[in-house]
Amino acid sequence: MARSAPQSSRWLIATVAVLLVLSLAPARWLGWTSDVAAILAMATAPAGHLGNALRARLRPPPDALSEDPRALEAALLNRNQYRSLWMAERLRSEELVQQLEDIRLAERFGAGTLFDPLLADIVGRRPDALRGPVRLNVGRAAGVRRGDVAVFRGAHLLGRIVEEPDLRGSLLLPITDGAHGRLHAAVLPDPEDADPAPRSIALLLAAQPDGTFVADVDHDARVRTGDPVVLNDPAWPETARGMIVGEIESIDRRDDQPLRRRVRVRPRYGLHELATVVLKIAPRGGGFEAADDPAPGDRR
C-alpha cells in the first residue's frame, strides 16, 4: 500500500519559499510555533521519556552512590537542604546587619520561603546540541509557574522555568544559559579562629559557552578552589537564594588588572546530563509571593 508523495514541483517550490520566509521572520511573529511544538512534544514525550530513562541507567549522574545508596542519598539530601538553609540565613543576617533591606524584603523574611517540591522528568532536549532549554513533563496542572526554579540533590540550582507553562509541560532554561544575564552570587568562607564571622564575597557571574561562569574578585579575597558559590540574586525567586550555583574550579591572575583575580565556577551538575529534576513550586495551600518576584528577563 505504497502512497506517493505530492508530485507537484510547484508545491515543493512554494513550501521552500514559505520556509525561507519563516526562517528569516522576526521572532515576535513566531509565538504560534511554540504551540505547534507543544503538540509535537506530546507525541514524542513517551519515546523521549524511555530514551532518557535508558540514558540515565547507562550513564548515571556523576556522583552516583555505590554503598547503601538509599541511606547515603537521604543523608546527602538532608545535608544539602540544611546547608542551603544555613547559607541563606547567613546571607539574610548580613543584610540585616547592614540595614540595607527594604520593607518588602523584611516582609519576605516573615513569610519565609515555603515551597512544595515537585519531581519532573526531562522529556525533551535540543537534538543538535547540549544547550538551550529542556522540556519538562509537568505544567500548569501540577502548579508550575513561570519563574519557578529547578534543583538537583536538594541544593544545586539547575535553572528556571521560562514562559508561562502549558497545561502539562514547561520549558526549563539552564542556569548556564547566557540569556539569564549576569547572576549575583556569593562565596561564604568558613569561619576561622582569626575571623569567626567572615563576610560573604560577592561575585557577578557571567555565563561562558563551555557551561562555566567567570567572575572577578579582589586579589586578597578569601576564595579557594572548591569553594561553593551560592546564588544571591534579587532578580531570582526567594526559593533560589542560597542554592549552589557551582564550585570554584580555578582562580587565575588577571594580567591586565593586577589587583583583580578571575574566578571560574563550574556547576556540579549539568542539566543536560540529568533525567529528572525537582521544581520548587508555590505551596498548594498558600503560596510564596511568586507574583512579586521579578519575571525572568525583567532585569534585562
Partner: peptide, 18 residues
Amino acid sequence: LSTPLVDGTLRPIHLIGP
C-alpha cells in the same frame, strides 16, 4: 519544532525553517 531557543526576553522561540 524540537529545538527551543530563547530570545532576549527569555521568551521561547521555535524557529521553523533552518
